[in-house]
Each structure stands twice: as structure tokens, then as C-alpha cells.
């Protein structure tokens, strides 16, 4: 079984502080990490390979600047078998349409595969569009929001999709793209052996030249969407504070709660609306 896992490097946010005045994220000196949701994609791939008695290959790929090698090394340390960096100045400025195209063409250069497993979305762009986009470009099925993946008959997997109504159970023919959510399971840590191996691992580059057999539908100029304005958000909140202490009993705090609901015309007992 050959599983390809496309991952993305995103800014590390767990230690980020908020600017108390503007209410925005302080991003100076922010490190990059593997997109947290992509870790679940990697984990799913490892588990599927284990279900197959450890037989198979897991290929991790990322599209980004040369520094993105760092997240590939991390994925190798966790247990991926090989990694490719997809990087070229010509790819810069690609939107989700162009990015999914580049990824799909790079995947075509990797030979036969059974599954492409991706995170449901990246925590920075937050679009969730690249997974289904890759499937569309490759003309293979897309199963999104998978909370569980199980190999069933040869050539099929069954997935449980987390949707608004609960879970939708589907069977999908391979090859397919599956995007996963956190419920897939706890993510494993890199092993020491993996870390040592990843340090010396060779990571081949896929640049525009390697994709010369395909139409160059990448970069800003080929991207259908354009960002025309970026604004910092300012959070305008009333900011009323009630402190429960020796002067203010909890009862008074609860009263403030009730008054707030009344002021905002929040209707109670409207549970079946």
C-alpha cells in the first residue's frame, strides 16, 4: 500500500501571546510547525500501514519555501518512509486552486498510489479546499472530515465522516483522497531512531522543471483569486466585569448574567426554534 500525505508548515501558535491593546496575535519570531491537523493525517497513514502488517510505503510531501524541509524531517522522524519538497519561486502566490493543481501534478510524478490522506484544513489559511481540490484534479473520489478509516475489501476503505447530523458512513473505492479530523486518534511522537534517520535522509526536490510535462497553471498569475485587502480585526466588546468577592455575592453575578440576556433580547426556552 502506498499512502501519500501532503502536509503544510504553519506558524506555531501555542505559545503566541495576544496584544492586550489591539487584541491581535503577536507573531514576531514565530516558529513554523507541521499543521496540527496534518498530524492526524500522518497518524492515519501509520495506522493503516500497521493494519497491513507494516507493509507499504508512506510518502510525505509539502509545498512551500525551502525551509519547509523542516516539517518533512519531522514527518520522517515520526515514521514516514520518504519525503519530497515541492518548491519553486514560480509556485509562489498560488491560491488553493493553483496549490491543489501543483500538488496533484507532483503526486502524478510519484508513481502509483492507493491513498492520499490530508488534514481537514490548515490552521493558518483555514480553507479546507486543497484536499477536495487535489481529488478533483486527479479525478479520484474525495472523502472529507473522516473520523475513522478502515481497510475493508481489497480496493476499498470505509470511512466515518463527521458531519452536522453525526457521522456519515461511506465506502470509497481506491485510489482516493481522504481528509481527516482529530477523532482519528492520538498522534504519536517522533522516535529517537526516526530522528536520527531523518537527519541524514535525502529529500528530493520537485520544482517547476520536474513538472515540465504539465501545463504551468501555478503561481499568482494563474490563481483565479486575488487578495485585495487585509485588515487587522479590532474586537469591540463592552467588557463589563463582575467580580465575586466578599462585597459581591455569586447571586449578584448571576443577576448580571440574567440582565445581560434581557438586554440582548436573548430568548429563553427557545430550544426548538
Amino acid at each position: 500500500m502506498h499512502i501519500i500525505v501532503p502536509i503544510k508548515q504553519v506558524p506555531e501558535t501555542s505559545n503566541v501571546k495576544m496584544d492586550p491593546v489591539s487584541g491581535t496575535m503577536l507573531r514576531t519570531g514565530v516558529e513554523t510547525v507541521v499543521n496540527p491537523l496534518d498530524l492526524y493525517a500522518l497518524e492515519s497513514a501509520f495506522r493503516l500501514k500497521e493494519q497491513h502488517g507494516g507493509v507499504g510505503t508512506i510518502t510525505v510531501i509539502t509545498m512551500g519555501p525551502p525551509q519547509a524541509v523542516k516539517v518533512l524531517k519531522e514527518a520522517l522522524a515520526m515514521g514516514c518512509d520518504q519525503a519530497y519538497l515541492i518548491s519553486d519561486k514560480a509556485f509562489a502566490g498560488s491560491d488553493t486552486w493553483a496549490t491543489s493543481y501543483v500538488l496533484s501534478r507532483a503526486i502524478m510524478e510519484l508513481g502509483a498510489y492507493d491513498l492520499i490522506i490530508a488534514g481537514e484544513r490548515a490552521t493558518d489559511g483555514d480553507t479546507g479546499q486543497v484536499g477536495p481540490g487535489i481529488a478533483a484534479w486527479l479525478d479520484i473520489p474525495a472523502v472529507t472530515y473522516a473520523a475513522a478509516i478502515e481497510s475493508t475489501d481489497a480496493g476499498f476503505v470505509s470511512c466515518s465522516r463527521m458531519v452536522e447530523e453525526g457521522y456519515q458512513q461511506v465506502a470509497v473505492q481506491l485510489p482516493a483522497v481522504i481528509t481527516v479530523v482529530k477523532e482519528i486518534g492520538a498522534v504519536r511522537l517522533p522516535t529517537l531512531r526516526g530522528k536520527i534517520r531523518s537527519r541524514s535522509a535525502e529529500i528530493p526536490l520537485i520544482d517547476a522543471g520536474k513538472l515540465s510535462a504539465h501545463k504551468p497553471l501555478w503561481g499568482l498569475s494563474k490563481s483565479p483569486t486575488r487578495v485585495v485587502k487585509i485588515e487587522q480585526t479590532t474586537v469591540k466588546r463592552e467588557g463589563k466585569t463582575v467580580v465575586v468577592d466578599e462585597h459581591t455575592p455569586a447571586e449578584a453575578a448571576a443577576d448580571s448574567f440574567m440582565e445581560f440576556l434581557a438586554e440582548k433580547h436573548i430568548i429563553l426556552g427557545d430550544r426548538h426554534a
Binding site: 487584541g23 466588546r237 466585569t241 463582575v242 467580580v243 465575586v244 453575578a253 448571576a254 448580571s256 440574567m258
Partner: peptide, 19 residues
Amino acid sequence: HQIADLSIVGDLFTVIPIV
């Protein structure tokens, strides 16, 4: 509390049952 419209600084186990 910094982004709330109403911040209740208090023990939730005391305040919520009253609410």
C-alpha cells in the same frame, strides 16, 4: 475575560447553579 462582553470573575461551581 479580555474579549468578553460580560466577565464574571468567580467560581463556576458557585455561579452556574444559581444561574
